[in-house]
Every structure is written in C-alpha cells, then in structure tokens.
Design a binder for these strands. Structure first.
Lengths: 308, 308
DNA sequence: TAAAAATACTCCATAGGTATTTTAT
DNA sequence: ATAAAATACCTATGGAGTATTTTTA
C-alpha cells in the first residue's frame, strides 16, 4: 500500500472530478486515473463509480474514505508527536527518590518542573539509592535523587542543597538540651543504624562519618529509611546521626542537636545516565540546577561533561 | 511521507538491528539505513540512537513507534472494511416505507434480512410513496416500500404479496354484515379519502378503483395513512375502500367486507434505483424476492433488467 | 458534440542492489 | 579484530508527464 494513493483518493472523493482533483494535487489527470486504478486493484474493490460525465463514491468507497481520513490525520499527528517529544514538550520521565528526599529539595524541584513543563508526565518512584543507581545504569529510570557519596562513572550528577549531619536523641536524654554535642561524647551510646544489606548507601554514609571521628560505637540495626530511624530514636531505642533536614519531618519526642567542630555534610545528588539524556531530562536538570546554585566546597561530582 | 518508511521503522524498532530488520523486510541493509535516515530527516527528529554495536530507541522514537503501529494497523483494517462493504457483509441501508406497509410484507422481509446480514445496519424511515420515489431518484434512499401503480423508469421494483381492496364500514352499518358488497351499492355513501396534495399515490389508487367501477361518490378528505382511514370509519365518519391487509391492524368498530366481482388488487412494490445497487442492496432484494415468489397476473413491473 | 476519463508512450527520480569503508567494542 | 552501520555507486521499477483516443450525457 502506498500512502500517496490514499491522499489522492481522499482528494478525489472530495472533488468527484479527476481534472480538478489532479490540479489540487499538482499532478496531471492521467497519473491520477492510474493511481486510483492501482488502489482499486490492490483492494480488489471499486471505490468510485465513474464515466465521462459523472464520478460518485460507492458504498465501499464511502466506508474507505472515512478510514483514509483518519489515517492521513494520524500520520501528521504522529510526526508532530515525535517532534514534540524530541523538543521536550511532551513525554514522560521516570524519577527515583529515597524516602529522606521528601524533606529536602526534591518536592520543590518536582513542582517547579511540573509547572514549567506541563506536557511531561512525571513518574515518581521511591527506591533506595542503590536500587536507583542500578535502574539508572539499566535505563529503567531517567534520573534519581540518591544519597551516595560517589556515583558510578557512567552517571552525571548535581549536588543537592547542603545538609549537615546532626545528632538525634530522645527528649529525655541527658545531652538532649545542649546547644551542640561533641561526637566523641556519644561513644557509649547505642546507635540506631542501617543494615548494610538493606540500605548500603545510608549505612556507608554514617559509618564513614564515625570512622572520620575515630570512634566505633555500639549499633543496633534497623529500617531502611531516615524517617524510621528518627521514629525509633523518639521511641527510646537509642541515638542516631541523621541529616539536619529531618527536623522538617517534625517527629515528636526526638531532639536534633548540632555537632561541634567542622560541619559533617550529608551527600545528596540528582543523578542521571551520562549517555542517555532526552530533551525532557535536560529540562528537568535545568530546573534542578536553577534551584540549586552550585555551592563551593561541596564534595559532589561536577554536573556537565566532567570526567572522574 | 512514504508508508514503507513507517513499516521499515516499525520492524527496525522491534529488531534494534539493521541487518536482521533488513532480512525480515526482504531487503539489504544499506537501503534500510538510507530509509531510516530519510524518515528522520523528514521528521527532523532522531528516532534511533545508533553506533556499530548498539541500536536503541530515543524517547521521540518510542512515542513515534506507538503511533506508527496504530497507523499500520488501521491501513490494513481500512482495506478489510472496504472489502467487507463491497461484499455486502458490512454497511448500511436506508429503507423507506409507508405506514400501511407495517401490516404487509415489510416487517417480515426486514427481519429475515437482519438475521441473514447482521453486519448491515438498516435505517428504516417512514415516508409517503411520493417522498420515497423522490428520495430514491436523489439517492437519499437505497430502497423503498411504496404504494404506486407505476414506478419511474429509473427505478426497478419487485411486487409485494397481493392484497385486494375491500370495503371498510362501521360495525352498525346496514351493509356491514353482508358476505360481500357490490361497489355500486355504495354510490350514496360518504367516503373517507386521501387529500391528493398530502398523499397523491394513495389518493390516485382509490380514485382509479372508483373510475374503473364507473362511480363518483361523495368524499371526505382526511389523513395520509390507511390506518387513520380505518380509524375514522370506525368512528362513524363514513365508509372507505382499504387494502384487505388492514384487517391485521385490528381496529375495533370497523368491518372489512370483500367486494363482488373480480378482485381489485392494491399496488405495493419494493423499489430501488436501477443504476445504484450496492451489494448490501442486492442482498436485501434477494431476501425480499425469496419471500415473495413472483405471482402471475400481478400488474407490477418485472424485477430484473426489464424496460417499460 | 463537447467535456472528461481512459490509453499509449516516454522519461527520470528513487527504491533497492553490490561493493566498500568507517566505527566502536 | 570483528561485527555492524554508513557511504559510494549502479540499476531498474514505477510515478508522473505529453499526446491521443474513447465514452456518454
């Protein structure tokens, strides 16, 4: 089947006159006659009843005309759709995020983007940081809000707003009302922590902080989410080190106290595959970058075209 | 836009390999590369991200693929639809009928046809005989059940089952209980009739019957339907000549009494344009003909290819 | 008889083939 | 080093043009 035959037939069915139809199609009459004959032969159906004085649609021709108009319409529409998606005006983005991101920059970035690019359908999926990096490598995710210190070389990333670790204690704790706490004064406490199997990124972040301070405290494994950690502390299960932004979660019975000395920044980045960047993702990154002016001294990968 | 480009792209998007896709398409690899390039150039959009080791759909390509599959599907479906309509397996027929036909063959024929050709949508429209012949000439109707003695030369027709005129009297009338009535004994009665303007065919039929009997009775004009005529007779407005089949209408207070002498057949034909006969109409005529074996001595036009 | 569709033919644009080169893993 | 896509070039099918014939209202 040739598409131009359908176009010719559609015009012919409107004009019901080979000469005028040929003129509208910018061809001459004989090839138009031949084209219609070819179409009818291919279908095995007479579409136009014609003689030298009259041209009229058959019942089959009328039915076919309806379908043909839909087809021609769709062909144009398909091209426009492709162009719109290529331009980032339409489409869909799959974005991953960890539970703790809901109290950081993520919601604001998502809302900004939804407003600026209403044609893009955002699919948000809560996943752990390691699940996200996996999914990003396998192209099952376009971008992810992750808590990892270093992203794989195949990913680019953008650091999120800085967020320092603070100490989280239950309200009744002797240290809970101090203005700030030295990390070493917590060496006898039991810490609520992440199991390495279930949330390796979060686990590693906190352990790195401990080892930098040179201490090896007692730990109690629990949960895969920062929010759960705070809730467990509030319930008296121990103390913990958590991102300062967890204050926004507002969990009663937990106090957040800054640590003494230099700040202990948490890691948090928006990451995406370096090699797979559709226009919609570019737009998303642009919105994120706009909301996150590059902070000097933050230990995250440079965003654009950098190599490790 | 060329349809084969869409086909090539659809297969290519499935295989994600130019060599295998070309094989499936029964062409060689180079023209397939050229074809995709031509499609991308026309759209102004990259559909496949490719190098010598990997071929992958872009976001725009994924969106376009969805549309392309619908288009290719529809193109095939359109051809099948055209063939089905041409074969009389699908489509629509506009059939006219006069009010009196509901007590004659029409309902049975329509039901037979609906059973035999369930794919054809029957559009039944009650119209006077003259409206129907007009509509048939202007191709606004495919066929019509009409009450006319002679159809125009541009129409073919099939006589319906024979139906004689009988006398219709109110129950209390002196002649109402006779076994049969001589037409001349009614010369002093007032007749319920059709106005010529509103129902010329019915009017002419009855007037012809009168003039054949050589009488010119008093008339009272009313209505455009046989059923109304019977109802008016029952209400004591006069007497009338009506088709015997009106007995089936079962209107209380009206008696139908045969006429003496030779029978006075009513006219009733299924008519259609000689020049415009889609397959669905052929099927309809076939069903009607099957139910109406040609009766000798009936004064209606021969059905097939006859000239007046 | 005149307007319009169908035929007969000619031409060239392009879809598709073969041979080869380039590229990325 | 090798598999696969891109490029170069050639061939031939068929879409479109011109000239003419046929048809029917």
């Amino acid at each position: 089947m040739k598409l131009h035959l359908l176009r010719y037939f559609a015009v012919l069915a409107e004009e019901l006159h080979f000469g005028r139809a040929a003129e509208r199609l910018s061809i001459t009459q004989p090839p138009l006659s031949a084209a219609l004959k070819a179409l009818e032969d291919e279908l095995g159906v007479t579409l136009l009843e014609r003689n030298s004085k009259h041209v009229a649609l058959t019942a089959a021709g009328t039915a076919y005309l309806g379908e043909v108009r839909l087809i021609l319409e769709r062909v144009n529409q398909a091209a426009q759709t492709a162009r719109a998606v290529a331009a980032g005006l339409r489409g869909r983005l799959d974005i991953g995020f960890t539970g703790s991101m809901v109290v950081r920059d993520m919601p604001a970035i998502v809302q900004d983007f939804s407003r600026e690019a209403p044609g893009i359908e955002l699919q948000l999926r809560e996943m752990s940081s390691s699940e996200q990096t996996d999914a990003l490598m396998h192209r099952q995710l376009h971008a992810g809000f992750v808590n990892v210190a270093t992203v794989p070389a195949a990913l680019d990333s953008l650091p999120l707003a800085c967020d320092s670790f603070v100490c989280c204690l239950p309200s009744g704790h002797p240290l809970a009302d101090l203005p700030e706490i030295d990390l070493r004064s917590l060496s006898d406490e039991t810490f609520v922590m992440f199991s390495r199997e279930v949330a390796p990124a979060n686990h590693d972040n906190v352990v790195a902080l401990f080892s930098r301070a040179g201490i090896h405290p007692k730990t109690r494994h629990a949960s895969r989410q920062w929010l759960t950690v705070v809730a467990l502390v509030a319930a008296g299960m121990g103390v913990a080190l958590v991102p300062a932004s967890m204050a926004r979660a507002g969990i009663a019975g937990a106090r957040l106290v800054p640590l003494t000395g230099e700040p202990h920044p948490t890691v948090g980045v928006l990451a995406w595959p370096r090699a797979h960047r559709p226009a919609a993702l570019e737009a998303f990154i642009a919105v994120a970058r706009q909301r996150l002016p590059p902070l000097p001294g933050v230990s995250a990968r440079a965003p654009e075209g950098s190599r490790p």
